[in-house]
């Protein structure tokens, strides 16, 4: 589990420490995504565009965000995929 994984035992081989760090970072990231499900999230896109939507899911490599109730300047889109390459940042309140 996470707590003991955080203590980097310096005598361990570098590959092991690196793998442990990777696992801890990834688990936390996935948990942060899980906490975002169903919450309104505001996305900052390129060229100063801001949209809000309910977060649904993302793919393994975080290439797309699947959202619902996407509020766009042209109206509300019931379901949409936001390409992560179009996104600069996102924020939500857990």
């Amino acid at each position: 589990k996470a707590p003991e994984a955080e203590e980097g035992q310096s005598q361990d081989p570098p590959e092991l420490r690196e793998q442990r760090a990777r696992a801890t970072l990834r688990e936390r990231y996935l948990r942060s995504l899980l906490a975002m499900v169903g919450h309104p999230v505001s996305f900052t896109l390129h060229e100063g565009v801001h949209v809000t939507a309910q977060f649904g899911a993302t793919d393994l490599d975080v290439a797309n965000f699947y959202v619902s109730q996407l509020q766009t300047p042209l109206g509300v889109q019931a379901e949409a995929l936001l390409r992560c390459s179009d996104v600069i940042s996102y924020s939500f309140k857990p």
């Binding site: 936390r28 942060s32 393994l60 490599d61 924020s91």
Partner: peptide, 26 residues
């Protein structure tokens, strides 16, 4: 955290009303 797959960063801010704000930067 930083997602080791996408390098996305997750920042947390503590707001004055005691709530949290979480920001992900791609």
């Amino acid at each position: 955290t930083t997602d080791p797959v996408s390098a996305n960063i997750v920042l947390v801010n503590f707001l004055e009303d005691g709530s949290l704000s979480v920001t992900g930067i791609m």
